[in-house]
Simulated assay, not measured.
Amino acid sequence: MAQCLAVVVLVSAARAQTVPNAASVAPAAKAAPAQTVMAPTPPSPDKAGEMGWELVATIKLPNPGPASLDRRGTLYVADASNNLRQFARDGQALNTYAPPQPGRVGLVEAWNLTQTLLFYDDRQQLVLLDRFMAPLSEIRLADYLPDATVRTATLAPDGRVWLLDESTLTLRTLDPQAGLRPQNTPLDLLIGRARPDFRFLRHYQNNLYLVDRASGIFIFDNLGNYQKKLPFAGLNYVGFRGDELYYFAADGLHFFNLYKLQERRQPWPPTPFDPASVRQVLLGEDAAYFVTAAGVLVYRLR
């Protein structure tokens, strides 16, 4: 059966007349436009595993940074120039946030419907955006923790920001309105003499999940009290979908039910998909996004 020709949709970023200010959502002058290529319809659905994969679009975005999904399935990806790109569920470009000053995006978190969190790890700064990609506030962490080195952060539903202070191995909370809060959790007793390699922090369903690449995933309640540890070492990132935590490995996607404590595995999409190229995987209700060095592959889940 003949395949349909690919339809190429070029989405050019709006050209700024001047350097964008802090409230600008226009792309920086040197930001390359994202290109979304709609994929041809495959000859037959993939029946391997519990999910069927259908490639629907390829977002051409060279050397992307961290990415995140909001609850509507909107995709947020930092590009090579550290602008934040926003894409619809089908891969079509929507908006771009260009920061007023340079900085490396170490984290993007868009799960909260009203705010998107950006963490610039090189300049130790948090930026909160609204759902239209306009800045709400900027927080210089040195104003609250002058001697700290924050490795990662996450946004709680009540607006608090949890921070991992790597210099003192402490979980801290920050209220953008009231400043630091007393819920600080020292981690030295949990870690002992081990050398942790903390990579990721996420607040999900009233718990905090702290990913240590060296040993596994530490779980705390929403007050910072230690609960337990999952022995999943070697990870840089974990995602959440329903009651499951997921991560990717060489043999596919792994799912762990947070309440039934059961694991399952989903095979990778069929060739020509290259698992070795994957940097990050994001799963929505009906779509999957594979972040690679060349951009983002958008799959429909069936």
Rank of each mutant, 00 (worst) to 15 (best):
R202F: 04
Q266W: 04
V291Y: 03
V7T: 15
E50M: 07
T271V: 13
T271P: 12
F132M: 06
Q92R: 11
T74C: 07
T149W: 04
R241I: 14
G242S: 08
A98M: 02
A288G: 09
Y226C: 12
V281P: 07
P20R: 00
Y76F: 15
P270M: 02
T149A: 12
N63V: 10
Y144P: 02
A88S: 15
Y120I: 06
A287W: 03
Y204F: 15
P20E: 01
A148P: 11
L235M: 03
A233M: 08
P157R: 00
G234T: 13
T271I: 08
L75D: 10
I217H: 00
P146H: 06
L128D: 00
G65Y: 05
A88I: 00
P267M: 05
A88F: 07
A156M: 14
F220D: 07
L163I: 10
R213W: 09
A178R: 13
W162R: 03
N206T: 12
D70V: 12
N207I: 00
L223N: 14
N207Q: 12
L126D: 07
N257D: 15
Y299M: 08
D212K: 02
D274L: 07
F240S: 03
A22W: 01
Q266Y: 00
Q3D: 09
Y144A: 14
G179D: 07
A13Q: 08
M51S: 01
Y289P: 09
Y209L: 11
L136D: 00
L230C: 02
Y204D: 09
G242V: 10
L118Q: 11
R72W: 01
K229C: 05
A48N: 12
R279S: 13
D286H: 06
A14R: 03
A2E: 10
I217S: 03
A287F: 14
G295Y: 02
A31H: 04
R15N: 02
L297H: 04
L253W: 00
D165M: 06
D143M: 04
L169K: 04
L258C: 07
L10I: 10
V298Y: 01
A287T: 13
I191Y: 00
R300G: 03
Y76L: 14
H254N: 14
A294P: 00
